[in-house]
């Protein structure tokens, strides 16, 4: 979880990620940020995030992203 928060903060400094309720709707993460984030997450957690996973539900909050990472690690 800490690693995830670190990555997010490097991506968009100054944003209080745990407090956000909808990173997609509130336009904190736009398409380009998502692409950057996916690259970082794939590297850091040795997972493979595919376009199927790139849906608002999986990137809505820090917890949602973390859950997705867990799921993909188990596969």
């Amino acid at each position: 979880m800490e690693e995830l928060l670190e990555i997010l903060e490097n991506l968009k400094p100054g944003v209080d990620f745990p407090a956000q309720t909808d990173l997609i709707e509130d336009h904190i993460l736009d398409s380009m940020s998502v692409v950057m984030l996916v690259g970082e997450l794939n590297d850091a957690f040795d997972i493979e995030i595919t376009p199927v996973d790139v849906v608002p539900e999986n990137f809505k909050t820090v917890d949602a992203i973390y859950a997705m990472i867990q799921r993909l690690s188990d596969d």
């Binding site: 692409v35 794939n42 790139v54």
Partner: peptide, 23 residues
């Protein structure tokens, strides 16, 4: 276009490699 073109291209393996190199 975002879900079927943008992410398909930008998250594809080829581009992932290219992006890594560029980074």
């Amino acid at each position: 276009l975002r879900d079927y073109v943008f992410y398909s291209v930008s998250l594809s393996k080829g581009f992932a490699k290219l992006s890594k190199k560029a980074k």
